[in-house]
Amino acid sequence: MSDFLGIEFNWVSHLEKIISAIGGFIGIWLVIAISYSFVGHDAPLIVASMGASAVLVFAVPHGSLSQPWPLVGGHVISALIGITCFKLVPNAFLAAALAVSLAIAAMYYLRCLHPPGAATALTAVMGGNGIELLGYQFVITPVLLNAAVLLFVAIIVNYFFSWRRYPINFMRPQPTSPSSLPTQLDLSYQDLEYALKQIDSFIDITEYELAKIYALATQHAMKMSLQSSHTIKLGCYYSNGQYGNHWSIRQVIAESSANDQKKAMITYKIIIGQRRRQIESCTQEEFANWAQYEVYQDENSWRIYK
């Protein structure tokens, strides 16, 4: 039932939760004061979208949707689109729907996807007389000013806690030499859970998604290794890494050299998959593009060679 409802069990400490709440309090208190000074009684509509932003920048400070460009760019671009739709489209329902859809597309293409930005676009269309009188000034005051205040407060509040400094660039370690990194490790879900606990900050990804990312990255690295080093070896078995009926394993049974590496030929036997037991040929380059990784048979199962 918890999986169906999407209830995620995160391992964020009580201190982390309290810091997020305090940051949200400071940020929104300032946003309310600014908004009321510019649009008066229509301010609650503006504050609503900024409240959603506060959840992101204070509770998920390292999320991609929480970073400075999505925060500021998402709100400003969405506000600009919302005001434009309000002025050009007479029908309020159509203008509101168009504003939100265009804001989503614009944030995607400008790489500043920020969900609360869509609420800002909607507010620009249906926000009332106070926002209507401001016109395009609404983009600068209070939207840009509010986003800047949230950004400033997020930087200050998170700075005092080394594990959650904001923006994420302040947290990135120095590049590590690839030779010093462990390769081809078998990680369990327990290993990934442990790693997430040690970070002690809400991360919008589950251990299952993280395991899938690791598996795909490992698979890609092994494929690139095959393609770059031309390590297709005579007598060895290779798989295409597909699933179900598309899964296939081939054994290299003969090879011919050529001056041009792309023209070197390989003869292989299909061990598992469509056209099983048939013998076929292709160039070494074509085989490397097909192969995802080398495999070997262990008792009654096939395993990735590491």
Rank of each mutant, 00 (worst) to 15 (best):
T141A: 15
T141K: 14
T141P: 01
P142E: 13
P142Y: 10
P142W: 04
V143N: 09
V143G: 08
L144N: 04
L145E: 12
N146V: 07
N146F: 07
N146C: 15
N146S: 15
N146H: 03
A148I: 04
A148L: 15
A148D: 01
A148Q: 00
A148F: 10
A148M: 13
A148T: 12
V149M: 13
V149T: 13
V149L: 12
V149G: 05
V149Q: 09
L150G: 00
L150P: 03
L150H: 02
L151G: 01
F152S: 02
V153Q: 04
V153M: 04
V153P: 01
A154N: 06
A154V: 03
I155M: 15
I155R: 14
I156T: 11
I156F: 11
I156M: 09
V157K: 07
V157T: 06
Y159P: 00
Y159R: 14
Y159Q: 15
Y159K: 14
F160I: 10
F160W: 14
F161G: 03
F161P: 01
F161Q: 04
F161V: 10
F161Y: 12
F161A: 03
S162H: 13
S162M: 12
S162P: 11
S162V: 15
W163A: 05
R164N: 03
R164H: 00
R164L: 02
R165C: 00
R165G: 01
R165D: 00
R165L: 01
R165V: 00
Y166H: 11
Y166Q: 09
P167K: 13
P167W: 03
P167M: 05
I168W: 04
I168V: 14
I168C: 06
N169P: 00
F170E: 09
F170K: 11
M171H: 06
R172M: 09
R172A: 06
R172G: 00
R172F: 05
R172P: 00
R172L: 09
P173T: 13
Q174N: 10
Q174C: 08
Q174W: 05
P175D: 09
P175W: 01
T176C: 08
T176M: 13
T176N: 09
T176S: 12
T176G: 08
T176F: 04
T176L: 14
S177Q: 14
S177F: 14
S177W: 11
S177D: 15
P178N: 02
P178E: 01
P178Y: 04
P178K: 04
S179E: 05
S179R: 07
S179K: 12
S180N: 14
S180C: 05
S180W: 07
S180P: 00
S180Q: 14
S180F: 08
L181W: 01
L181T: 02
L181K: 11
P182Y: 06
P182D: 02
P182N: 07
T183S: 08
T183F: 10
T183I: 11
T183A: 13
T183N: 05
T183D: 03
